[in-house]
Design a protein around this nucleic acid. Structure first.
Lengths: 189, 189
DNA sequence: GACCCAAACCTACACCCTGTAGGCAAACGT
DNA sequence: ACGTTTGCCTACAGGGTGTAGGTTTGGGTC
């Protein structure tokens, strides 16, 4: 019986590919083992079980999204930056639906702070720098942006927009428009 | 062995209660059977398996949410209506986290149209009636509202706001403010 | 009131996934 | 060449899904 030469990172990449192809719920220790031609028990030597596997896929997705978002924002500001930033998430969600779904899984405080979380925070701050939102409202504005973008992509992926016209793709630019308008005329109570 | 007198609706209520108490992922044919004091196989006489069970919980949640939202909006308009409408979802999400999670599960076209979907659509239309959004932009506006509210509640439930100040509850009114402002000054490209 | 039948619930089973224990063999260092 | 470590294995326990087929229960019928 030849050795497959497994590594945790390789297994995580396989799991991510499987998530994108078959859906996140089909990612199991067994399916990953099958995919790499190994028995399930062997996987446990490299990963701490199913939870650990999924947590790592989540981290991978968050990291990849932060990279792509940073690339998209680079050299842009204001509305351009917002559009590119939001668009990078949508592109990623389409290209990697399983990874994107994984990115929503709750993480512990430690993992969240150790992973790509801070990079996402920094990127949001970059976006806001192009607008006149008061400093102390930044957390609210960041949460608003995150909520709207996440909500839209989540509902779009779930097919919630499929039952009414027009196509979801038509609404996306309007949603980005709306967020831009909102940041330009940020309401203070 | 006395009869338990199971009905599909009763099993779905048990499943919903289980979802709220233990999390949606703990809702299985087996756990529901255990809860009502019956063997798993017996449940299959009343439901078409795990998928059917979860689909029915989804429908239940959507229906309950439509009812509460309708109650909240009744007699209000404009900003008041928006606030009450959005608030009803948040209240529901807190009171019934498992049901709320179930409400996100994708439904087939037929089920979506047969269930509470149209009632939610009608309610959204009621909200928009209090603002001057052009008729042909209504779908976009509805999607924006839905995306932001769903996104916020989803991220809040996942604990994504727990790692930064201030508490998520502080951001909620600001998000509703923002949506109100947006609908009042709806941007047309 | 006895009887019959359909429904409700059961046992038993096959299959898949998780996770642990312990075995064998390949690769590595000396 | 020879241990030792490491990688992958088999075997198994435990739990979930779903099916097949048996048994009991309770309501309708005469």
């Amino acid at each position: 019986m030849p050795r497959a030469g497994l590594t945790p990172d390789q297994l995580v990449l396989v799991a991510a590919a499987l998530a994108d192809r078959d859906g996140l719920d089909r990612v199991t220790v067994s399916s990953v083992a099958r995919q790499v031609g190994v028995k399930p028990a062997s996987v446990y030597a490299h990963l701490d079980g199913a939870d650990d596997l999924l947590r790592r896929v989540t981290q991978l997705a968050l990291t990849e999204m932060a990279e792509r978002a940073a690339d998209a924002v680079a050299g842009r500001s204001g509305r351009d930056a917002l559009e590119a930033w939001a668009g990078s998430f949508r592109t990623y969600a389409f290209a990697h639906p399983g990874r994107y779904a994984a990115s929503h899984r709750p993480l512990g405080r430690t993992e969240a702070l150790a992973g790509a979380g801070p990079r996402h925070t920094a990127l949001s701050a970059t976006i806001l720098r192009g607008y006149d939102v008061p400093e102390h409202d930044h957390p609210h504005a960041v949460r608003l942006l995150g909520s709207t973008i996440h909500g839209f992509l989540d509902l779009e992926a779930a097919g919630s927009f499929d039952h009414s016209a027009p196509p979801a793709a038509d609404s996306w630019p309007r949603v980005v428009d709306a967020l831009d308008a909102l940041l330009r005329t940020w309401p203070t109570p």
